[in-house]
Design a protein around this nucleic acid. Sequence first.
DNA 1: GTGTTTGCAAAGTGTTTGCAATTTA
DNA 2: TAAATTGCAAACACTTTGCAAACAC
Lengths: 130, 130
Amino acid sequence: MSLLEFAGLRITQPRLQIARILFADGEHRHVSAEQVYGQLQMTGKRIALATVYNTLGRFVDAGLLHPISARGLDATLFDTNMAPHHHFLNETTGELTDIPEGEVPLDLLPKPGDDSEILSCELVIRTQAK
Amino acid sequence: MSLLEFAGLRITQPRLQIARILFADGEHRHVSAEQVYGQLQMTGKRIALATVYNTLGRFVDAGLLHPISARGLDATLFDTNMAPHHHFLNETTGELTDIPEGEVPLDLLPKPGDDSEILSCELVIRTQAK
DNA sequence: GTGTTTGCAAAGTGTTTGCAATTTA
DNA sequence: TAAATTGCAAACACTTTGCAAACAC
């Protein structure tokens, strides 16, 4: 069963091509829509940028990707690492790096009001070149 | 000595009006450029939206405001609370709430690579209505 | 066959910029 | 008066949308 089927997504060429770029080797990536689009073009795949955006959005809905946007990032990055984890954002280079789970001692989160519940928590540590 | 002088900013009408909206009562706020613009208009002050953006940007440079942008926020919010603190972001309402300093047990941050140093760290806890 | 997805271009949104006119110090 | 700031409109960059054609199942 393919990843796409598993995620409940119909198998189409654009989705296959994009999934191949994202999940080919099991490595975790942070990619923007533009980057994916660029890689598709380099390999001769003609897929509209709008389709890349839409496809990535559907991958997010389907739980295959995690969107990250933060001040200092020009565009939304899509993270293939779905495990809860946090990020370093290097302000000098714009580079986003995973912080392995467990390295952030965040075991006791404050409680929101009684009428709401915690969905997720995201820590971004901004760094700069020394 | 006025806040603007203190921040090393030349005193101009637009800056005074905007500072008045932001810092009038010493309360902390999260405001967007549009909101400030709206308040200016309500009180008959004719200041261009672009000027509001530019002015808020200069307030940030001068250390009077802290910009916050996160997925789920349509626009950048400017926080008058310059003390290190974190936020709840209610995904249902879009509302951003301060988490008082000390309520997040974040005393041991992971270290970035040797060639970079930590500038700041920002935690956003996403919540939703129960 | 039928409902979904794509491609494309166009619209949308938040934000920045260029430059002449104005204001500040 | 010299330098900084404003206003305005136009430019910008990222992202979404509308709709007809193509495709998956």
